[in-house]
Design a binder for these strands. Structure first.
Lengths: 214, 214
DNA sequence: TAGATTGTTAATCGATTAACAATC
DNA sequence: TAGATTGTTAATCGATTAACAATC
């Protein structure tokens, strides 16, 4: 409904709802927030509030019509329009992102990869990998709004500057560099080390008993 | 100081502080929370509160002794003790995680990879990649507390069950499967699609003006 | 003393939960 | 009607910020 700001947590839940709704057999025509909440182990009021932001198809006593709710969720999540992205840096991580299948289904088109050491006519699961020099040319011909940086820290800033010059609006940064960008550019740092450290700390602070390893 | 629960956001800041403090020249002996806050564009009270949870070396008018603060941060972040992890699934993403250098510095030892189609004596940047069958044996000989799942959704649950049987306490799940685990197992789902969708939505909701692409 | 700083207590803000009114 | 459900308003909780006391 209102496209204002949806917090990341809520966004994650909306995607969970969508997946769950799609997983139900076709025979299920209506579904209540309470059932969704139970299935996903969430509070019922929370789900109800989430859904009321997304759809106004809820009917008392019946719940939501499933297919309409799916459509509303997909609309809010922008899954029907498609957004172009390129990956800069085509070693293992870059290749993994190029071949990852999940993006397409969400309307995210990872169009091509770019790498300083790209060989001519290289591809990764059908997607072309060009030398860095071709980036500007490619972006001028294609609609690319997101740049994904997987290059080493040493050249990340330089790659970032070129992406900005190409007119890209948002950057997904897998490098460890702290990027400096103009304020209108949106940067999301994906810090894998942080994720793993957080997991370890949560784990350690939980069972101080069954810790087999010293 | 108190190892209670540190929120993920605070954890991210602590790592930023650590990186910043290490980046300063050796000549800097003391540093104030205010200076750290300015350098990282954070509120000064926030930084002060973070640091006061981590260290009690702060002295009025002087700030914190830099090297002691670094040590305190590393202690809280558990960077000195080492934690063993294995990666299950050794295609592109698994390989990327095996060769990622950043984990070591944080005391995270990614020891080996496992893959259904592993060839004998395979390695990725020096780390062995074994067939799935060897997982139990490896875990019984080595101290492995974290399992990283990068296999396709179809076999993710089965891999997860085996990891649990191996005595692993925490799972970092890159697959799209919703894993079912005993309650004492900690699971963190790394949802790359969600990250990219969130970035796109934030971007779209920001500049509805300069949107070149339709 | 005056200034810079720490660290604490109160205020604000956002997200979640509880209570409840509305209604089909 | 009674029961299931939506959707709203108030309460709670945690994180951040503001105000301020303490002190070197």
């Amino acid at each position: 409904m209102d496209p204002k700001h949806i917090s990341r947590k809520r966004l994650a839940r909306l995607m969970d709802y969508l997946q769950y709704l799609k997983s139900l057999p076709d025979s299920v025509e209506n579904i209540s927030a309470t059932r969704v909440a139970d299935a996903l182990a969430l509070g019922d009021v929370l789900v109800r509030k989430d859904l009321s932001k997304v759809s106004n198809g809820g009917r008392r006593k019946l719940g939501y019509p499933r297919s309409a709710l799916i459509q509303d969720l997909e609309a809010v999540l922008d899954m029907n329009s498609s957004t172009g992205a390129i990956v800069v840096g085509a070693d293992k991580l870059g290749q993994a992102l190029l071949e990852y299948e999940g993006f397409d289904r969400a309307g995210l088109d990872v169009l091509a990869g770019f790498d300083p050491f790209a060989v001519p006519d290289a591809t990764v699961s059908g997607k072309p990998v060009y030398p860095l020099e071709d980036m500007e040319h490619f972006c001028s011909r294609n609609c690319v709004s997101i740049g994904i940086i997987t290059v080493p820290e040493a050249i990340a800033q330089q790659v970032c500057d070129r992406l900005v010059a190409c007119g890209i609006g948002a950057i997904w940064n897998f490098s460890t560099a702290e990027l400096i960008t103009p304020p209108e550019i949106l940067v999301h740092n994906e810090n894998l080390v942080l994720s793993l450290i957080a997991l370890r700390m949560q784990h350690k602070n939980r069972d101080l008993t069954g810790d087999i390893c010293s």
